[in-house]
Design a protein around this nucleic acid. Structure first.
Lengths: 296, 296
DNA sequence: GGTCAACCATGACCCACATCAATAAAGGCT
DNA sequence: AGCCTTTATTGATGTGGGTCATGGTTGACC
């Protein structure tokens, strides 16, 4: 396993390392070195510097093509930047927002990962998604003006908070921003519908294979390895998300391993046979019909 | 069973009755009389008149509170009205749009009903939704600029076509329109996520009971009976939507009948025991957590 | 180092629902 | 009316994956 500096990313200083815990815009810089698979293997705390010096701006953010893919000029970018609140990172298990919280902002994930889940009235949880850097979450709360699910950090996670009202105001000024928002929400609808298809039609092995392929693809679009990564979520979360029992997920992992498709050691996954996984999934959930037509 | 004139609605003249089939804005008026349950029991063709005389305008439309619930002044409403294309009604089985069609418009359903379904790459269909008057469809195509599912009429169905680009232009002028669009899309995300919960967690009987309750609620918000209605979709569509086998759906209908919850004769459904149905569903899929908190 | 709590793996058993098959009823077409 | 296709119902049988139970790891904390 090789370590590479190209995967060195800048994230906010976790609160426990932070000298001024009280302030919302805390200062400090925390450099973490990530392995190709996204696991943080080392982290260095720098001299504490001011937020201004740090310049964690959308303009410099390697993810802005993912979260709001727009060609904005310097001024528009600065305007967008000015409304974004950067909060202290969440610890594993902390909630970004909870079901029934008043809706005021949407959030762009900068580093780490979260799960979103809602609770049915008979008390059971249903995981509705796993979210990686570059994704926007909280969009489902716009209608109700209250959050309908809880977002919980799966590891140390840092997000940009984007106040929705101010974003709306900005949308009247920056051409294309509104449309981009609609586009992102449209994509989310599409993804949820794809998810409905799996849940209604796919067998357990197809579901797990599809999920692993999707994670693999997400890592590779973020220029990590598509073959080797660490799952940040537990077996229980995976099972819940896929509508299966934990035991089934466990058995499937070992079966995939026996069949030589992958190696798995707890959270660490190495996919040996991507083609075989595709055959196992029997359909790529992220490859839409029109993409397929284009390819063929 | 009583017939009531309050349920008499105006719909477009089906093409086969229409004297000038070629033109997009055909002329003619077709009055259908509906029973409380929404079934068309009689229909009368009037003298052919011009579209201008007919004045099917948003302002007069009984559904505009459902499809774009906004308080617009006369001018804004007229502007909205001017971009809407009213096309000839679809016959049962006709497609409004198909997967891979270029996306240019969203559609508001005026009368009738449609199903949307997508096709997985191994050829099987998955019904992603049933849609009633007042709903907007086609929103999932904004990202890809191509439709990702097919919308097919379940009965004679009339829609308003809303060109998306012109709607976007209008959004820059009419305050609140953009936000309303976001709100509608947000609601769709929410509904899809609820659907994911059923599919992952609910038993067959819970799924069917939930669906029937949802349909009942939809009818009642459109001021039809919540107890008695006609299903416009086939058993196959229901089974497909719920991720079950047709046989299972059929058996469940008879079981619900034996248990005295409802009477069913082919497409005609009378719910005798709404409370019992709620108990059977064991959770109301449309009642979100925050609504529940408010109620308790 | 010891204890406790999560988390994960694996075997034995069983049931809800799919699948297969046969029949019946309804609707469309000539 | 008669024919044919589609749609719905019902029964018999099989199985995928849920449930229950046990034991093994790992990591946090004292």
């Amino acid at each position: 396993m090789g370590y590479s500096l190209k995967n060195c990313v800048f994230i906010d200083l976790p609160q426990r390392f932070c000298s001024n815990q009280g302030r919302e815009h805390h200062t400090g810089i925390f450099i973490s070195i990530e392995r190709r698979d996204g696991l943080t293997v080392a982290s260095i705390e720098s001299t504490v510097i001011s937020m201004q010096q740090m310049k964690v701006a959308c303009e410099n953010c390697s993810l802005h093509q993912l979260c709001l893919p727009l060609h904005l000029d310097h001024d528009a970018m600065a305007a967008l930047d000015s409304i974004i609140k950067r909060r202290r990172p969440l610890q594993r298990g902390e909630n970004l927002f909870q079901s029934c919280d008043k809706f005021s902002s949407i959030y762009a994930i900068r580093s780490g990962s979260l799960k979103t889940f809602s609770t049915t009235n008979d008390g059971q949880e249903q995981v509705t998604g796993f979210h990686l850097p570059g994704e926007l979450i909280g969009l489902d709360a716009i209608t109700t003006e209250e959050h309908n699910c809880t977002a919980r950090a799966l590891e140390t996670t840092s997000v940009c908070e984007i106040p929705f009202n101010r974003l709306q105001d900005l949308g009247m000024q920056i051409p294309g921003l509104q449309r981009q928002l609609l586009r992102i929400m449209s994509r989310e609808i599409l993804e949820d519908q794809n998810m409905m298809i799996w849940l209604a039609k796919k067998s357990a092995e197809e579901r797990l294979a599809s999920l692993l392929l999707r994670i693999s693809k997400q890592f590779s679009t973020r220029s990590f390895s598509a073959h080797e990564f660490n799952l940040s979520m537990s077996r229980t979360d995976i099972a819940n998300y896929l509508g299966l029992a934990v035991e089934t997920v466990s058995r499937l992992f070992t079966r995939f391993q026996v069949e030589g498709l992958l190696n798995v050691d707890r959270k660490h996954v190495v996919i040996n046979d991507l083609d075989g996984m595709h055959r196992m999934a029997h359909s790529d959930p992220d490859c839409t019909q029109h993409e397929k037509n284009r390819l063929s």
